[in-house]
Design a binder for these strands. Structure first.
Length: 110
DNA sequence: TGCATGACCTGAG
DNA sequence: GCTCAGGCCATGC
């Protein structure tokens, strides 16, 4: 398989619990490619490639900023999705990001 | 085969 | 504490 990176990113994102958010760097690090944090976002952008639904809206940058909101249809679709999960978005940023932050490492290991 | 891009992160000024 | 610049990895043309 080979391009596991793509698959792994989707897999990890799908594991993000409801009402929780993660970061590209955390996912990239969990996969093993720390420097590929940028690619994580890219993989999510191509989430349409994956048959399963991928909650990309739960993935934000290190600052908890909705950097990928532009990739969603509409103007603040991503924000609405997060708010639907009980999160509070302020100025395109998740309130108490640290509190809702979820690290894939909590799963233990691959 | 090679260059340019991308939903980022970290270090230095 | 904030802003600027560099790096890293994979994909696309």
């Amino acid at each position: 398989m080979e391009h596991d990176f793509f698959q792994q990113v989707h897999q990890v994102v799908r594991l993000i619990p409801y009402g929780r958010v993660s970061s590209y760097g955390a996912i990239a690090r969990y996969i093993g490619s720390v420097g590929a944090s940028r690619m994580v976002g890219w993989a999510l952008h191509k989430s349409g490639n994956n048959a399963e639904y991928t909650p990309a809206h739960r993935v934000l940058n290190r600052n908890g900023l909705l950097t990928g909101k532009a990739a969603f249809p509409g103007e603040n679709t991503m924000q609405q999705l997060l708010e639907s999960e009980g999160l509070t978005i302020v100025n395109n940023q998740v309130k108490d990001f640290e509190k809702y932050f979820w690290d894939p490492m909590e799963l233990g290991d691959l």
